[in-house]
Design a protein around this nucleic acid. Structure first.
Length: 272
DNA sequence: AGCGGAACCTGTCGGC
DNA sequence: TGCCGACAGGTTCCGC
C-alpha cells in the first residue's frame, strides 16, 4: 500500500494523537508474520512505555518511547494504524491492539499480514534500517550521488528508483508518475542517464512527493489515514493505472508493461 | 551484480 | 452462481 507520502501522513497524524500517551497493555490477535521475535518479550518491552515522538525513515514508522526504546513498524501493502475508543472486540483484520493509558486503543490492522512490528532498545540494532539509501527529500538527493552510484549500471531506471538501497520511499505508483513527468522511458539503462536526466528525476521526485504529502497521500483502494479518511493525490495521477487511456500530454494511449513482476505505466510517445 | 521467480497472505474483479 | 486466473501501494530469499 503505502509509499513515502502515505507513511508520512500516518506518522504526522499519529504524532499528533499519541505523544504523551502511554501503552498500558498489548493484545496480539495474529502473530505471524507481523510481530517479529518472541511475543512475551514484545509485550513486556512495550508495557508502561510513553510515546515521545513518531518519525519516519524510508517507509518505516518509528515510535520513540521512554525510557529509551523503539517500536519500528512497516505497513507493507495493507497495514494501517487506527486510533479508536475502546471496542468490544477486534474487528475484521485487527492484528494487534495497543491499549493506551488515555483509555483509547491504537490498532494495527493488516489484511494481508505482510506488515511488521519490531521493538529495539537502540535504533542501531534494527537490521532493516541499516541498508537503506538516501531520503529523497534530503540534501543528499543530488545528481552527483546517482551519477557516481549508477556508473555504467545496466539496470533499468524503474528498477533503480524502486531499490530502497539506493533511494528510499518510492514505490510503484510514484515511480511511474516521476518518470512520466521526467519524460524518461522506464526501461532506460540507469548507467546511461546524463546529469540533466538525473536533475529532472530529482526535481520531479521531490515535487510529486511534496504535492502528495500536501494531499495526505494517494488512496487507490486500501490506504486510509489514522482518522479513516482517504488521501486525495489519486486525482493528480497522470499515468498510474491509466492503461489504454489517452496520455494527458499527447493523447496516445498509455501503456502497461511488467518490470520486476510489477506493472509500469508510461507513454511511449512522451517518454524516451 | 543482478536477473527471474517464488514466497509471505488476503481480497477483489473480470471472464467464462 | 462458481471457479480460475490476474492483480494489488512491499520486501526478501533463493538459484543461476
Amino acid at each position: 500500500m503505502p509509499e513515502l507520502p502515505e507513511v508520512e501522513t500516518v506518522v504526522r497524524e499519529l504524532r499528533e494523537e499519541i505523544c504523551g500517551d502511554a501503552i498500558s497493555s498489548v493484545e496480539i490477535f495474529r502473530k505471524n508474520p507481523i510481530v517479529q521475535g518472541d511475543l512475551d518479550a514484545f509485550q513486556e518491552k512495550l508495557c508502561g512505555m510513553t510515546f515521545l515522538d513518531v518519525t519516519r525513515r524510508a517507509k518505516f514508522l518509528i515510535f520513540h518511547l521512554q525510557p529509551e526504546r523503539y517500536l519500528i513498524a512497516h505497513l507493507r501493502m495493507t497495514g494501517k494504524f487506527i486510533i479508536s475508543d475502546p471496542l468490544p472486540e477486534p474487528i475484521k483484520h485487527n492484528r494487534v491492539w495497543f491499549h493506551l493509558k488515555s483509555g483509547r486503543v491504537m490498532i494495527f490492522d493488516d489484511i494481508r499480514c505482510f506488515g511488521t512490528l519490531e521493538v529495539y532498545d537502540k535504533l542501531a540494532d534494527s537490521k532493516s534500517l541499516i541498508k537503506l539509501g538516501i531520503e529523497p527529500l534530503s540534501a543528499e538527493m543530488n545528481s552527483n550521488y546517482f551519477l557516481k552510484k549508477m556508473l555504467s549500471s545496466k539496470r533499468e531506471i524503474k528498477t533503480v528508483l524502486l531499490d530502497q538501497k539506493i533511494v528510499v520511499g518510492l514505490g510503484n505508483i510514484y515511480v511511474s508518475e516521476i518518470l512520466f513527468r521526467s519524460r524518461i522511458h522506464p526501461q532506460r539503462a540507469a548507467g546511461k542517464l546524463l546529469k540533466r536526466d538525473w536533475t529532472k528525476i530529482i526535481k520531479h521526485t521531490q515535487d510529486i512527493l511534496e504535492e502528495a504529502i500536501k494531499n495526505n497521500g494517494t488512496t487507490i483502494s486500501d490506504f486510509r489515514r489514522v482518522d479513516d479518511k482517504t488521501g486525495t493525490f489519486q486525482q493528480f495521477l497522470q499515468v498510474y493505472g491509466k492503461n489504454e487511456q489517452a496520455c494527458p500530454e499527447c493523447d496516445v494511449p498509455i501503456q502497461r508493461i511488467v518490470q520486476q513482476q510489477r506493472s509500469t505505466f508510461f507513454c511511449a510517445e512522451c517518454q524516451k
